Amino acid sequence: IGSLMYASIFGNVSAIIQRLYSGTARYHTQMLRVREFIRFHQIPNPLRQRLEEYFQHAWSYTNGIDMNAVLKGFPECLQADICLHLNRSLLQHCKPFRGATKGCLRALAMKFKTTHAPPGDTLVHAGDLLTALYFISRGSIEILRGDVVVAILGKNDIFGEPLNLYARPGKSNGDVRALTYCDLHKIHRDDLLEVLDMYPEFSDHFWSSLEITFNLRDTNMIPGSPGSTELEGGFSRQRKRKLSFRRRTDKDTEQPGEVSALGPGRAGAGPSSRGRPGGPWGESPSSGPSSPESSEDEGPGRSSSPLRLVPFSSPRPPGEPPGGEPLMEDCEKSSDTCNPLSGAFSGVSNIFSFWGDSRGRQYQELPRCPAPTPSLLNIPLSSPGRRPRGDVESRLDALQRQLNRLETRLSADMATVLQLLQRQMTLVPPAYSAVTTPGPGPTSTSPLLPVSPLPTLTLDSLSQVSQFMACEELPPGAPELPQEGPTRRLSLPGQLGALTSQPLHRHGSDPG
């Protein structure tokens, strides 16, 4: 009997000691992992102490058991019943959930998450997105703005933001810190809205009876308010094209079509300037034949640059190039080494500058006005007194259609001029006259002087055409309008007829 009692007592005591040691061994194993994590990542002392304290409290609170892992091991129907039991206190005593059906309560219970916070733990920081609604079931918390405590909340209090009033989550206007050990039930806004969409009859009752104890939403960050730039940057990543407008005076608003859609830094370009900076079609017209890549860069430059609305530039004389043409100036200075066709295309550029300027006046029909002061630039669209967005969009579309028509007509005119030049060069190729044979009589004449090349004649003739079109064909006081194609086609051969009437002889060394 004594040996039996000794064996039973010894066996029970050893089993008890073994169970104690097993729990202690698990605790030390998990604690060792936490300390190894702290050492590996070199976490500083204040945060390291918070980690160790939280682990110790969580171990004593749950005995080292992962409740979520245990809950996920059950089937979904059983999980709903378990969640309904775990959140029964909240669902029974909170006013917004009263009167809900059994199915609605089960769906809500599945969406709730339980959070346990030790003292000093910050649940929400200032500036964080308010993605959830919090219900306090135990403990107390404090809300701070800077170093000032603005509120202390306790059991059955609710904090967050009214989700039904805002389409997008706002930002917190303060820090939420736990004063004691707290148990909180939180539900994400997407989950709550999903359940309320499934039960629309409960939705009206819920929003009407929901009383948020403390609204954390920062009202200064609401979209459309003066301080909402940061919020707009976070939620409006896919922005449309940006529009900046110059201020319109009362006198300017009476004149229709007073602005032109141009790229940034293009205030001095012609009315047909689009795409790359520098001139019509993204580059100076005089350098068009020598740089074919300008047409390839036109599309990307047009689509990537934001639109700006600026006044037209001052008018340019008909014979003056659009500006920024070092290529043609070098050719004029060193005409001995340049291609003979460069002079002809220089005359073509003069005609283009004249036609572009006159067509700009035809479509816009307003006098040039000086540029406004820099303080009046970049007025935002949302400022008071601005035109409605639809009106601005319609004006932009009208300007775009005008620019497209202008570009089409300029292309047709350019093709006409090039065809005339090619026809003239085919009839009378460039050549130098040879020395004529002296006559049989004693009164022999001296050799004839060489005839100037055709490109120079073409430049003079085209300059005469531009001056003739600019000065004589337009009646005084009438708006400057571009001439039609047949009129220009008839004027060019008439001007060139006198020049080509002389018999030109080919030089023996000319390969053409």
Rank of each mutant, 00 (worst) to 15 (best):
E296V: 08
L163N: 04
P450S: 12
E393L: 14
P372F: 10
E142M: 05
N350M: 03
R359L: 10
L499H: 15
S140A: 06
I143P: 01
E142G: 08
S305Q: 15
R409T: 04
S287M: 15
D147M: 03
L165E: 14
S452D: 09
T249R: 09
I212S: 02
L406H: 04
S305P: 08
L418I: 04
C182S: 08
Y134G: 02
V428L: 07
V148P: 02
L341P: 10
P475C: 12
P264H: 13
T253D: 07
G323A: 14
E211L: 03
R401E: 05
S446D: 07
M425A: 09
D252L: 12
S501Q: 08
S394H: 12
R247T: 11
P475L: 08
L420T: 10
K155F: 03
P321C: 11
D250G: 08
S305E: 06
Y181H: 15
S272V: 13
P300V: 05
S383G: 09
Q467Y: 06
L406F: 05
R138P: 03
M198W: 06
G257W: 04
P317A: 07
G233H: 10
S433N: 14
P285K: 04
S137N: 11
D147H: 07
E201S: 06
V149I: 12
F345V: 06
G233D: 10
E472D: 13
F245I: 15
P438Q: 08
N173I: 13
Y363G: 10
F345W: 05
L163W: 08
I143T: 02
S273F: 13
P476H: 12
P311W: 02
L410M: 09
V176C: 11
G160F: 01
S290R: 12
E393N: 15
R239A: 11
R423V: 09
L427Q: 06
N173M: 14
E201I: 01
W207S: 04
K155L: 03
Y363W: 05
C369R: 15
G324P: 08
K251P: 12
L231D: 13
P447Q: 09
E329Y: 01
S291W: 11
P326M: 12
A151M: 04
M198L: 07
R217C: 05
A434D: 09
L179F: 05
A267K: 09
S411P: 04
Y199I: 01
P306G: 05
F312Y: 11
T253L: 10
A412H: 15
M469N: 07
R246I: 13
R189D: 02
S225K: 09
I222K: 07
S290N: 12
L396E: 13
R247S: 11
P374C: 12
E332V: 11
L399D: 01
E254C: 13
L130G: 02
A470L: 08
A431M: 10
G512Q: 13
R401C: 05
M469G: 05
I351K: 05
E480H: 15
D191M: 01
Q464S: 08
T456G: 10
A261D: 13
P169H: 03
A178C: 12
L462H: 14
D191S: 03
S394T: 05
T500D: 14
S463I: 12
R368W: 07
G299P: 04
Q424T: 06
Y181L: 05
D252V: 08
K333I: 10
L481W: 04
T443N: 13
S509F: 06
L262V: 09
L196R: 02
F214L: 05
P440S: 13
D147F: 02
T443D: 12
L420Y: 09
I152W: 13
D252C: 06
F312M: 06
E325R: 07
V348M: 13
D191F: 01
R168Q: 13
C471I: 05
P271R: 08
L216N: 01
N156R: 06
P289K: 01
Y199N: 04
I152T: 11
I158V: 10
C182F: 01
V195S: 02
D336W: 03
Y199V: 02
Q362N: 06
P317G: 08
R145S: 12
P447E: 06
R368M: 10
S228P: 09
I158S: 13
V348Y: 09
E332M: 05
F135T: 02
T229L: 08
V435Q: 13
S209Y: 07
G508C: 09
D252H: 07
L144I: 11
N215H: 01
R168S: 08
R138G: 10
D460A: 09
F312W: 08
V417R: 03
Q402E: 04
S203C: 13
R405Y: 01
V259S: 13
Q364A: 14
T500Q: 14
D357C: 04
E201C: 04
P511E: 10
V465M: 15
D413Q: 01
L192W: 01
V435R: 12
E365A: 11
M328C: 06
N339Q: 12
L163Y: 12
Q502K: 12
G512K: 05
G139C: 03
V259P: 12
T456S: 12
S228H: 13
R409K: 06
L133V: 10
G127C: 01
K186I: 10
G127K: 02
G299D: 15
S260D: 14
K171Q: 09
E194K: 07
A431L: 12
I379Y: 03
P479E: 10
P440R: 10
L192G: 01
L327Q: 13
Q364N: 15
E365H: 04
P511K: 09
G497S: 12
S433Y: 04
F468A: 07
P256V: 10
L144T: 13
A415D: 12
L427R: 10
L192C: 03
P340T: 10
S446G: 12
D128Q: 06
S137T: 13
P289E: 11
T445C: 10
G146P: 01
E296Y: 03
S466K: 08
E254Q: 14
K251Y: 12
G139T: 03
S335K: 15
S294I: 13
L492S: 09
P374M: 10
S244I: 11
I351E: 04
F159S: 02
Q502C: 09
D460L: 05
P493C: 11
G270W: 05
F468C: 08
L243F: 10
L496M: 07
S313N: 11
S209K: 15
S335Y: 10
E393Y: 01
G170I: 01
F312Q: 09
A434W: 10
V259I: 08
L179K: 09
R274Y: 07
R241K: 10
P479C: 10
G508P: 14
G497T: 11
S208L: 07
A261L: 12
A167L: 09
V417W: 01
R217Q: 03
I212A: 02
S172R: 01
L192Y: 02
E254R: 10
R168F: 10
T219F: 11
S140Y: 07
S313R: 10
R177M: 05
R217H: 13
D460F: 01
S286V: 11
T249L: 12
L165P: 10
L499D: 09
K186V: 13
F354T: 07
G154R: 07
P430S: 07
A261I: 13
H505C: 06
F159Q: 02
I158H: 01
A261H: 10
R361N: 12
H505F: 09
